[in-house]
């Protein structure tokens, strides 16, 4: 395991030999936050809060800065009222538990579904996948290969069929076969395309005809290297489908994923999973404390 250098390890280098948080340190902090895609708005908010504390406490040593930052960021993440999930893949009382996975093109929806299916399966759940991306070239084949890897069935109607009826069928078969979890893949779509966003709402409605309380989870997948557009994605997908949870992918790259902080600050949707690679086991349940700690990790 390689240890990724945390967001703020650079900050500690910038302030060696100083005893007091001054403008230069705050500038450095601003650069770090913006460069991690936290976003200007949230960055300004964090800086302002620290400035206020410096003013109030008259003297803040740079060693205290780490602590204050930790608190501030933890608080931003806490505004997003989620409890940390400890038993994400345990059998639910709800059966079948229906998860619909949505997001813009290429973020990692299908891969995340493969990884999730594997975890649910390992935890003893009977899992069924629905091949609701009937549009992108070879999308059904891709999901089927994931199904094979995990060793679970994939319901598909082939390419260029109605995704809503695939979803309907997957849920219906899950009920008939007494499956525990159904995960429905959908085609990637940009949130500014009205027709495609309406199609998502339709998939949801059609599933509800069969199972009124489904989907129990609408998982929005965001690419961890996405910049400020992630905010609009969260906003628009929520409008169309009432997103209930987020998965942030590709955090094995060099992008710092600061977008998590900004999004937690502005939306009340919890981050549930993070993707850290292309392999079946490269999925982690999001843990706030670990995440904050990782931001402060020094290079090993």
């Amino acid at each position: 395991e390689k240890t990724k250098e945390g967001l703020f390890s650079k900050l500690s280098r910038a302030i060696v030999g100083k005893s007091k948080v001054d403008d230069e340190v705050l500038d450095e902090l601003e650069e770090i936050l913006i460069s991690s895609d936290v976003g200007v708005e949230t960055t300004v908010k964090i800086i302002r809060r620290i400035e206020e504390r410096v003013a109030r406490d008259k003297f803040v040593s740079t060693s205290e800065l780490d602590e204050i930052l930790r608190e501030e960021i933890a608080e931003l993440l806490a505004q997003n009222k989620s409890e940390d999930i400890t038993d994400a893949f345990k059998k639910s009382d709800i059966k079948p538990y229906v998860i619909m996975v949505v997001g813009v093109n290429g973020v990692g929806k299908t891969t995340t579904i493969g990884k999730l299916a594997s975890q649910f399966h390992k935890a003893g759940n009977k899992v069924i996948l629905g091949a609701g991306d009937t549009f992108r070239a070879a999308a059904v084949d891709q999901l089927k290969l994931w199904g094979q890897r995990v060793g679970i069935p994939v319901i598909d109607h082939g390419m260029n069929t109605d995704p809503a009826s695939v979803a309907f069928d997957a849920v219906k078969q899950a009920v008939e076969q007494q499956a525990d979890v159904v995960i429905i893949d959908t085609a990637g779509r940009l949130h500014n395309k009205v027709n495609l966003m309406n199609e998502l709402a339709k998939i949801k409605r059609v599933v509800q005809k069969f199972l009124p309380e489904a989907p129990h989870e609408v998982l929005l997948v965001l690419d961890g290297s996405t910049g400020q557009n992630a905010f609009i994605q969260a906003q628009e997908f929520t409008k169309a489908t009432d997103v209930t949870a987020l998965a942030i992918t590709k955090l094995d790259g060099t992008a710092k994923g600061g977008v998590v902080i900004g999004i937690s600050d502005q939306f009340k949707i919890p981050v549930k999973y993070i993707g850290v690679g292309e392999k079946i086991e490269d999925l982690q349940v999001f843990n706030k404390k670990e995440f904050v700690n990782s931001l402060f990790k020094r290079k090993a």
């Binding site: 895609d37 290297s225 996405t226 910049g227 400020q228 557009n229 992630a230 992008a255 710092k256």
Partner: peptide
């Protein structure tokens, strides 16, 4: 490169 890429681009 994806036009939605952030600071890491």
């Amino acid at each position: 490169v994806d036009s939605m890429t952030g600071q890491d681009a």
